[in-house]
Write a protein that binds this DNA or RNA. Structure first.
Ligand SMILES: [Zn+2]
Ligand SMILES: [Zn+2]
Ligand SMILES: [Zn+2]
Ligand SMILES: [Zn+2]
Lengths: 135, 135
DNA sequence: ATCGCTATGTTATATTATAACATATTTAAT
DNA sequence: ATTAAATATGTTATAATATAACATAGCGAT
């Protein structure tokens, strides 16, 4: 297992498990609802865990959806370079793990010469299934 | 003037003018506050205008900041391909208009062969000024 | 044992965004 | 000009997302 030596606190572990086992990105309040039975009762508890999991690179936030997804990409445990594929029809979301793309973007500098240490890219289109259904 | 032949309704024009003249991206409720004197009183009026301006490509939403910025990039009046540079320190935000980048991303296909008709990219780093101030 | 740091618990509130419905205005067809 | 459809606006209420502020608990290092 590519298990990094990073400990999760109790709440962090509870919340990570839920996100990790979900089939789709989860919203903060849906997470809150799921963890009520585990004793986590209030939004700050959820948001604090989310913040830390993001900083650790264990999860990412899909900004255009306000939803959280577990990182399946052992490369980006630093959470500073993320790319997602989002289907406009069924909302299926997957993390893109493409070395050429990440290299291209990590090395990108704009016309003023500014360099970046972090990026987030969200692609939208129709996934295979939805494209088929339309044709 | 590269004035496109697209009419803005009264509220759309009021709200576009404010965003266009702002030095930085504006939040919806700060726009609402600014336009109270023009008779726009409620959030839905602002959000509706924002939605339509976005669809027209006249403005873009900075997803990571929930803020709205006028498009200065005559290319992207279709709003389907956006890239921004965001300074982590002073929050300066500018739209990146780089032909190589936009071509690369428009033609990108992931490992499953999926193609995209829209993307949004947000780069983070330190702008020139902030980098200087740190050194 | 005490200090400093991190995590947690809790209440209240701030911020962002939409639902739902009524009315008005514009556009296009008859 | 009359009507119908489509678009835009006005209005109230509420939903959804996120943070402030403060109190308490746990834990590791000196
Ligand atoms: Zn990842
Ligand atoms: Zn799909
Ligand atoms: Zn633009
Ligand atoms: Zn700066």
């Amino acid at each position: 297992m590519t298990q990094k030596f990073e400990f999760l606190s109790k709440n962090q572990q509870i919340i990570y498990d839920i996100i990790e086992n979900a089939k789709e990105p989860l919203k903060a309040y849906s997470i809150l609802y799921s963890v009520k039975k585990k004793g986590i009762k209030a939004p700050p508890q959820v948001y604090r865990a989310l913040d830390r999991l993001i900083k650790m690179g264990k999860i990412h936030k899909i900004e255009s959806k306000n939803a959280f997804i577990a990182c399946k990409n052992s490369n980006c445990t630093i959470s500073n370079a993320t790319a997602f594929s989002i289907c406009d029809s069924c909302e299926a979301i997957t993390e893109i793990s493409n070395l050429k793309l990440s290299k291209y973007l990590a090395n990108f500098q704009d016309d003023t010469g500014m360099r970046y240490n972090k990026y987030n890219l969200e692609f939208f289109g129709l996934c295979r299934k939805c494209k088929k259904n339309k044709s």
